[in-house]
Nucleic acid binder design. Structure first.
Lengths: 195, 195, 195, 195
DNA sequence: TATGAATGAGTTTTCATTCAT
DNA sequence: CATGAATGAAAACTCATTCAT
């Protein structure tokens, strides 16, 4: 519903651009308003406050992000392939969107505790997707049966996230996509029942 | 040399406490000074500015942190045991220091880009320790010989860091130390030449 | 253009009053804002910073000051009369504006080098007016033909300025206007070709 | 008596140097102490407070300054020659002492009202010297008999002071001494009974 | 809906001065 | 006499948010 209003999206897109270009702490409401070609006050017609803008940026962008990953995964047959697909889609989407990568990996992490909690809430579905892959892998006997799901999920997410963050901090000087097979192999090694 | 001055350490300890209790953005210099039982101005006799206090907190604490890990590792014979020791010491030190865990996992990450770069510089030796374990494991034929060292290091650090962060965000409601064997097993699974 | 905004002038007038009453160094932005009946932040909508407020005070006030002198002079026929007019108008305007006299003679001189340079720039047109009177007097053979113009200008300005400053420091206890003829006579004596 | 203490003079000289090199507002007590090679606290054994240091700088330096002028004048026979001598000595002493010129013409004027009053008190004897020359000139019938002494004194001092200030602000790019004859001629023109 | 002028709370840092040694 | 570590008050400026139009 929110999304039908063109100004709403205008502001979201402007926020991503402004944060990516100026950094989290230099992204004043007035700067976002200017980039969105609306008045400062207009922002408060669509968002409760500045924090709401930032959370919404994350919600909108991560929503699409997760949806695409979920869809890609649904077309794969087994947990191994699904994990591959997840890594690939995760990397690809951030590889393809320069601004988004900076904003999610570096800038939005400078937010305060409240915002962080809300960001975690948005991430929940992604973590659930990871959990389901783990479960499926165990059911399919591809993964060891005694895996501690939350722990494994934290390993998978922590690994992927750290690799992307490193790539962003190195100013994306190397090719992220080419690392997919190795990352997948490492994680499969950790989970595989054949170990 | 710095450390011999008692006020210097008084301020560092106060900063950790204040940041842990109030959060990064609510940790005014005056609050730190009060907690250290010194005048506001005294802080500027020992530190260039507020950022210098924060960087120094990280330097001092992570310096000790890494030293202890390095020492523990040096007494182990092979890469597998060293990795176990690293995970254990990493978890134990943060497990034992409530404030430090909050500060390193949550609060200091809210810092700006400049501060982040300096924090990364402090972390460098830790990453080097991880690298050396990986190399040693490959030499000892315990780990696969074709490991991509930076990638593996990112997996190890990302995994450990994510697990600690989760534990801190869950308000340390569960026992972190009990997870050491499983984390070690997962990582060894990823690296082992026996896979 | 700036001047059309009522708040701009409100702030300028408040600044003159506050500086005259409290002295240069005790004229905080918050005090000026309060006197202008605006919020502190409003000052920064109209001025770049505090120094800009002070420079603008001088620009606005000296602009008018010099304009009035220039106009009065333009109606006089010869250099002698023009010099008389200049002294008279200079004294009259400061005589009539208690606050302005204190601000220009005492308070704004406490400014730092940067501000002083800008004040000098504003004064430039006034010095040019003096120069033109000297030149005209030489052309009209009323003044000696070999006058060193910068030097004579410095004598005229130095004399007038010192007399006004003395009057302000003596808390304007005597009548400044009554001194005009004598000051004029002295200066004419210095310049006159009849000497 | 003060002067017999070597540290007292050390501090005075350091203050002149520091003020000339750093400007009035950047001349902290600690900087003066360092330049004088004494501890900060030592300054307070010889001076009541910072203002006292500045006043003392002016007292010491202007005391010598005025003494030399008074002595030079005492050897001259008539008011015209005495005025010449006064101008020449005034210019020469500032011409010869780079730091002193900057400090008296530019930096010490940035002081507040209290300090200004004390500086004026120090200047009093100089103004008395000027007054006595004017009186003598009137008695000797060299000057007009109806001169308004305070006004003439203000003209003489205002002229000399403005010329020196201009020379200092122009970074002493030209020769001040060469202007003595013209300045003298102008002032004599203003005062002379032959006009 | 949309605007943007106005608000005012909030924080780092400096530096003259003191006083225990 | 001399030191210099410690003190703590004081002020410019930013920016999220409001509200009259």
């Amino acid at each position: 519903m929110k999304n039908n209003k063109p100004k709403y999206n205008q502001i979201i897109e402007a926020a991503v651009k402004v944060i990516a270009e100026n950094g989290f702490h230099a992204s004043q409401v007035s700067k976002i308003a200017k980039a969105a070609r609306v008045a400062d006050g207009t922002i408060y017609l669509y968002f409760k406050n500045k924090e709401d803008v930032l959370v919404s940026v994350f919600e909108e962008k991560m929503g699409q992000f997760i949806d695409k990953i979920a869809e890609a995964i649904s077309q794969k047959q087994n947990a191994e392939e699904k994990l591959y697909s997840l890594i690939e889609m995760h990397f690809r989407q951030l590889s393809d969107d320069y601004y988004l990568a900076i904003v999610t990996q570096l800038e939005l992490r400078q937010s305060n505790y409240t915002l962080r909690l809300q960001i975690n809430k948005v991430l929940k579905p992604y973590l659930t997707v990871i959990d389901s892959i783990i479960k499926e892998g165990m059911e399919q006997k591809l993964f060891r049966s005694n895996l501690n799901i939350p722990l494994v999920r934290q390993m998978i997410f922590g690994t992927i996230d750290e690799i992307v963050t490193n790539w962003v901090m190195k100013e994306q000087k190397y090719d992220l996509m080419s690392q997919v097979p190795e990352v997948h192999a490492l994680l499969i090694g950790a989970l595989s029942s054949k170990g």
